[in-house]
Design a protein around this nucleic acid. Structure first.
Lengths: 229, 229
DNA sequence: TCAAAAGTGTTATGGTTACACCCATGA
DNA sequence: TCATGGGTGTAACCATAACACTTTTGA
């Protein structure tokens, strides 16, 4: 290592804000800290970046190690670097956010080392470090991005009903939408494939199932199309 | 420093993509490297983060040290952390982008240590490290943000004409706009204050001067208004 | 008086909003 | 047969897009 570089360096970490959706709520996965500082408080899953891995790799690895999630939408969010954000040391953290499908894969709520649990966004516990701030930035990003990019599908099962899709938007954006207008708008885009299947196990008229046509979206986007709700 | 932290740490840097606008072009300030690696190539202004300063402070400091710019719109862009992005060492860089007003303040094009110069976006030289990639991400962010946030004014003089404003959008977004529709749209927002002054020194009918009403924008935004071109 | 850019209004089109009832299904 | 959510069309309104000529000014 060259002597041209600072002898005392910050430590670099990654933290992940993992969002999931159930029938009622947008949720975030948190992990209970077993050691000081902030012992007993809840924190975002995360850990230190190794010298032989990229930031994306580190985020993916930590996500899997701490929550068991192997496949998820994962995107860099923002880098937090206030001088005293960690009482132990100068730690800069590159925050990521992830969207996971809670409908099909049961995400394990406990890891070997520590407790993990899902919390509704509206009902969060006290968080360690500046993780409340990171979470707020992640939520804003999610809300903003949901409007003009088709990322909501990451939170739904592969096959979903139009009502599920609408409810997703209503929950995350925290506003009611008109059913007829929502359907007209989303179907007009021609990005949903009607699977000619119905949902099962409901005690009322079964809804049609759709899936998102990602290939077609990529083509349209390439030609200047922009998704917008 | 606790022994709990990795002994070998990455180095953390900040790099700034500084955008300016003149009558014809969107420009970026680059600095010619005087030392290896990439000696003689052009690079983004930047440097290492000190242990006693935040990332924002580091970006602001480097911007001033390397380009003389004291006041500018400065926002974090993205953090680049590929393992081998710097041949000397594992260096993670937190990239920022800045918007400066080239019309009123002459930004010095040379620093003590090295050559600095403005390059039109369409005519860039070979860049050091992964700085071409950083620059492309910055350009995309600028183009995206310009559409739905009033950041373009940072690139114009305090007092500007509607044609200057329209030309800014045309240059940065790389598309022609209709003069009458542009004026109707922007004036309808009630965010421009007509200064009842005219431009001077032009050999044709002098245009009215306006300034951006930032206070009013903040109020409107608070009430849910969203700027959009 | 010429050249150059400033400034201005109308119409057609398409998208958005608001709104209420019948249908299918399982219990 | 009842309760529950699924599924559907129309009309009013508003925003956007297309488009060309007159005005002002300095050279």
């Amino acid at each position: 290592m060259s002597k041209a570089f600072a002898q005392y360096k910050p430590t670099v970490a990654v933290d992940c804000v993992v969002f999931g959706l159930d029938r009622q709520d947008l949720k975030v996965m948190l992990i209970k800290r077993g050691v000081a500082p902030f012992k007993g408080d809840w924190a975002l899953p995360g850990g230190f970046v190794q010298l032989n891995e990229s930031l994306d790799q580190a985020a993916k690895r930590e996500l899997e190690e701490e929550t068991g999630i192997k496949q998820a939408f994962l995107e860099q969010l923002y880098t937090f670097g206030a001088v005293n954000r960690d009482p132990r040391d100068r730690i800069i953290t590159v925050a990521y956010y992830a969207l996971v499908n809670l409908w099909e894969h049961q995400i394990r709520a406990t890891t070997d080392a520590s407790d993990a649990a899902w919390f509704a966004i509206a009902n969060l516990p006290k968080l360690a470090f500046d993780h409340d701030q990171i979470l707020q930035v992640a939520l804003q990003r999610l809300q903003g991005k949901l409007r003009y990019q088709p990322i909501g599908f990451e939170l739904l099962p592969q096959k979903f009903t139009l009502t599920q899709l609408q409810t997703l938007y209503e929950i995350v954006l925290d506003q009611k939408l008109d059913k007829r207008n929502f359907r007209k708008k989303i179907l007009k885009m021609n990005l949903l494939i009607d699977l000619n299947e119905r949902e099962t196990g409901v005690s009322h008229r079964a809804a049609r199932l759709y899936r998102f046509d990602k290939k077609r979206y990529e083509q349209l986007r390439y030609r200047g199309f922009s998704f917008e709700i």
